[in-house]
Simulated assay, not measured.
Amino acid sequence: MIIAQMTDIHIGFDREARPEELNRQRCRAVLARLVKQPNTPDMLVLSGDITDRGDAESFARTAELLNDLPFPVHVMVGNHDSRDGLLAAFPHTLRGEDGFLHTAFVQDGLLVVLLDTLEPGRHGGAFCAARRDWLRGVLEANRATPTVIFMHHPPVVSGIEWMDPRPDEAWIVNLAAALDGMDQVQAIHCGHLHRQLAASFCGIPVSVTPSVAPLVSLDLRPISSAVPDARALITTEPPAYALHHWDGTRLVTHYETVGDWQVLAYYGPHLQPMIREMERERG
């Protein structure tokens, strides 16, 4: 099974742009590559910040881009989104009795959990007691099932200070409590940071998929709201997506940037000896 992940599209950031805003152009490019690349996804997870302002028009324009995809799409909410706007554009999205847009399902022997980390009006993450208890209940009921968790906000400190939470924030403490002892969780995949990141949380590998919208600059120096030091904050680095490959035993993640690049080698008869030698080494 292959789970594709795109994140942080931010449709509507410049909705007056003509003929089409940059974020929509970048989204089209990633979707085109996702469909044409050789690894057909079994599903696509959009892990939050689908829109920039949470408005109905931007959600509708995003849904229009996804209409003809040949695989199902699971849409998650980010801090720039709104739950009502998402549900209007993507009515198949499940809303729990507690009001949160979180869900879990098993496919090909893997439990896929999609979390809701939105608190309206807050840039950073949220994970209240109700969400903690929901997640704990899901994991308790599926202790024997390998699990992958998707969430918008990374529960780790990246070092990009203006984007980071404090490590002791209540929502992070609640998430840790839900995950305590749940060793069936193989990975947590996030968005929000607009940069690729690898870390760990509660002994679980945590990865951030780079954004579709322009990326956050890699600058690990301290930053102060009192000193605008002219550092780069946002760049035009290429958009990217992830493919999470589950083979029934192992979960492996690949990332690809999207742009105009050339193929330097094709597999023809001249490269058969190399492939045969690699096969021989593997036995």
Rank of each mutant, 00 (worst) to 15 (best):
A104F: 03
V106Y: 06
Q107D: 14
L111I: 07
L111D: 05
L115E: 09
D116N: 08
D116P: 10
D116Y: 04
T117R: 04
T117W: 00
T117C: 10
L118F: 01
L118W: 06
E119T: 02
P120Y: 05
G121F: 06
H123K: 11
H123N: 06
H123W: 13
G124I: 02
A126Q: 06
A126L: 00
F127I: 02
C128N: 15
A129T: 14
A130E: 15
R131A: 07
R132F: 03
R132N: 08
D133R: 13
L135I: 06
R136P: 00
V138R: 11
E140M: 13
N142A: 08
N142P: 06
R143P: 00
R143S: 11
P146R: 08
T147E: 09
I149H: 10
M151D: 01
H153W: 00
P154A: 14
V156M: 11
V157L: 03
S158L: 03
G159A: 11
G159F: 08
I160M: 11
I160A: 08
E161N: 04
P165M: 03
P165L: 02
D168H: 11
D168L: 05
E169C: 07
E169W: 12
A170F: 09
I172N: 01
N174Y: 01
N174L: 01
L175A: 02
L175I: 05
A177T: 13
A178L: 06
L179G: 06
L179A: 05
D180P: 00
D180L: 12
G181Q: 11
D183K: 13
Q184F: 08
Q186C: 12
I188D: 04
H189P: 00
H189S: 10
C190N: 10
L193T: 07
L193W: 03
H194V: 09
H194E: 06
R195V: 15
L197T: 12
A198D: 14
A198M: 14
A199Y: 01
C202N: 13
C202V: 13
G203W: 09
I204D: 05
V208Y: 01
P210G: 14
P210K: 04
S211G: 14
S211H: 02
A213T: 08
A213D: 04
P214M: 12
L215T: 13
L215Y: 04
V216S: 15
L220W: 09
R221S: 15
P222K: 04
S224N: 08
